[in-house]
């Protein structure tokens, strides 16, 4: 196997328990996994299983209580905010609700241009051309550049959010339920876009979803989480066709679900 882009070793994350003075909740309990360059790893599991915590901790949006996060061999688990900054460009995130991930008072062009300028990836003179090229890459006409978030639909905004993440040419994108809030017809557009973008740019992706059909469509490998632990991980076909863990078997079982009513086509 090639050198992993991201290696997570024995990662443990604890939060303060809001219901118990001085108590802690263990959100992640000794999780280890690798993400290879250019692969899409799916994280599946029910809500509360630790999928989002794992994704956010991999990007160091949380500091772990134990374990290591190796980004290209370098442990970033306890780096200071300043020491993390050079690595931030390489790791981007796409959230479930695109509306809340944009500043409502900034145009889409500004939202995409700001990180480009902050990371000095292009000069002020070039920035407009870069923004338009990014919009085109995610299938948005140039006319969207001066729009504000509230003037766009959920699908268009999610395209812009993906464009903003891509603008920095990251090595890794963590997408947290990035298609869950979208309408069925628009979801297909965004899934096709994610797949095309990933192939074009060869970036790696951690794709968090509770939708097994979506995981199966998009991901190369899939990791099943349950109560903060990693139950199993493997190539998507293998996990779906030959699940090893009882919980995974139950989860996969919902896919080939109980007979449709009176012989309705599935």
């Amino acid at each position: 196997m090639t050198e992993p882009l991201l290696r997570i070793e024995d990662l443990t994350v604890r939060f303060r328990d809001p219901n118990r003075e001085g108590g802690t909740l263990t959100a992640l309990d000794g999780v280890s996994l690798d993400v290879a360059p250019g692969e899409i790893l799916g994280l599946v599991g029910e809500s509360g299983s630790g999928k989002t915590t794992l994704g956010k901790t991999a990007l160091r949006l949380h500091e772990p209580a134990g374990g290591r996060i190796l980004l290209r061999g370098r442990d970033i688990a306890h780096l200071s905010e300043a020491a993390l900054r050079p690595h931030r460009r390489a790791m981007q995130m796409v959230f479930q609700d695109p509306l809340s991930s944009f500043n409502p008072r900034q145009t889409i062009a500004t939202a995409i241009a700001t990180p480009l300028l902050l990371h000095r990836l292009c000069s002020k003179a070039e920035v407009r051309a870069r923004v338009l090229a990014i919009l085109e890459e995610v299938g948005l006409p140039a006319a969207f550049a001066p729009r504000f978030p509230h003037q766009m639909s959920g699908g268009q905004l999610q395209r812009a959010a993906i464009g903003r993440a891509l603008a920095l040419s990251p090595d890794l994108i963590v997408a947290d339920e990035a298609v869950s809030k979208l309408d069925v017809s628009v979801r297909a557009q965004i899934l096709n876009l994610l797949r095309a973008v990933q192939r074009r740019s060869g970036l790696a992706m951690i794709f968090i979803t509770h939708d097994l059909h979506v995981a199966r469509f998009l991901c190369h490998r899939v990791a099943v989480m349950h109560f903060g632990k990693l139950l199993e991980i493997g190539p998507v076909e293998e996990v779906f066709d030959r699940p090893r863990h009882d919980y995974t078997r139950a989860l996969i079982g919902t896919l080939h679900s109980p007979a449709a009513k009176q012989g309705n086509a599935p």
Partner: peptide, 14 residues
């Protein structure tokens, strides 16, 4: 989506 097609059938627009 269920059949894991290479590209999903889309309904363009919104």
């Amino acid at each position: 989506l269920t059949a894991r097609a290479e590209t999903l059938a889309e309904i363009p627009g919104q």
